[in-house]
């Protein structure tokens, strides 16, 4: 009897062991390396010296420069998330209410962007918004403008690129939530005298909040950690926190400081995830991306 109980207790761990080993090898151990690196020092020629110093942490936590870029990163990620929510919700609603072949086709369209490289998708905006891009050419051709408008290489185009990248995550999560709502509840609201708008505000929207929040979390975390979008679509001063990590590690060969900055971003984003988990639960995200 005891043997069966022990076996039953062991079974989940046996089944989970490949995933646990993978996470340990590819996430936990590298993370430990980064923690150790954060206390080391950069040598004069760009190597690292094994030491135990809080200097890098002190610099990163007390220097206004890092704080400002971190806040700017959070602001850009938040704006991106809000835009994604406003743009993505109606699309998700429309897909969730579609029937038959249409729904499958619309879902296929939502998945299409994932088949094209993120970098290619980001660079495509240069051909659309550039001085000799499609939009300027169109406006010039119809006589709306006399000379091309400079639309690229600013914070707006960075946010635009991020929205383009992250919108499918928002739509898919919200769609899953909307699709799971029992339509009988909306019918009940209607039969009790609620008009369609009231039904939406009082029934549909509150019930779809978990999906909206899951999409928002994904958009925020992925947006705040982005590196390539500001490089391609940003101007000289449009940097995000991941760009600082890149510069510390690659340009300045200051791996210890780069480790500290990586951990700072990890802690901030981890806090956002934990807050979300406290109120919403991470299970909703699994539904959205599964």
């Amino acid at each position: 009897m005891a043997t069966i109980e022990q076996s039953e207790k062991r079974a989940p761990w046996v089944l989970l062991s490949p995933a646990l080993v993978t996470i340990a090898l590819l996430l936990v151990i590298p993370l430990m390396f980064i923690v150790v690196y954060s206390f080391w020092l950069r040598t004069s020629v760009g190597g690292v010296e094994a030491a135990f110093s809080f200097g890098n942490w002190q610099e990163a936590l007390t220097d206004r420069f890092y704080r400002d870029i971190l806040l700017s990163t959070i602001r850009i990620a938040a704006i991106t998330t809000i835009v994604c929510a406003f743009v993505g919700y109606p699309v998700a609603y429309f897909v969730a209410r579609a029937r038959g072949v249409n729904r499958g086709f619309l879902l296929l369209l939502l998945m299409l962007p994932f088949w094209v490289s993120y970098i290619i998708r980001t660079m495509s905006w240069i051909n659309i918004l550039g001085v000799s891009g499609a939009l300027n050419s169109l406006l010039l051709a119809v006589g709306v403008i006399d000379e091309p408008i400079q639309m690229l290489y600013n914070e707006t185009t960075v946010i635009l690129g991020l929205v383009h990248f992250l919108l499918p995550f928002m739509i898919l999560n919200t769609y899953v939530s909307l699709d799971g709502i029992d339509r009988a509840l909306e019918d009940a609201a209607n039969s009790l005298g609620a008009n369609p708008m009231q039904t939406f505000w009082e029934v549909t929207l509150p019930l779809s909040v978990p999906g909206l929040a899951a999409g928002g979390l994904l958009c925020f975390v992925l947006g705040a950690g982005t590196y390539i979008t500001p490089v391609i679509l940003g101007g000289p001063t449009d940097a995000m926190f991941a760009n600082l990590v890149f510069e510390a590690i690659i340009t300045q060969l200051d791996w210890p400081l780069g480790a500290v900055l990586s951990l700072m971003l990890l802690v901030v984003l981890g806090a956002v995830v934990l807050t979300y988990n406290r109120f919403m639960g991470l299970g909703q995200i699994a539904k959205g991306i599964g």
Binding site: R42, S44, G46, F65, T237, A239, E247, T251, Q252, D254
Partner: peptide
């Protein structure tokens, strides 16, 4: 290198 590359990273931003 160490001083200037770091300073440039700030000025750039």
């Amino acid at each position: 290198e160490a001083e200037w590359s770091k300073m440039f990273g700030r000025v750039q931003k």
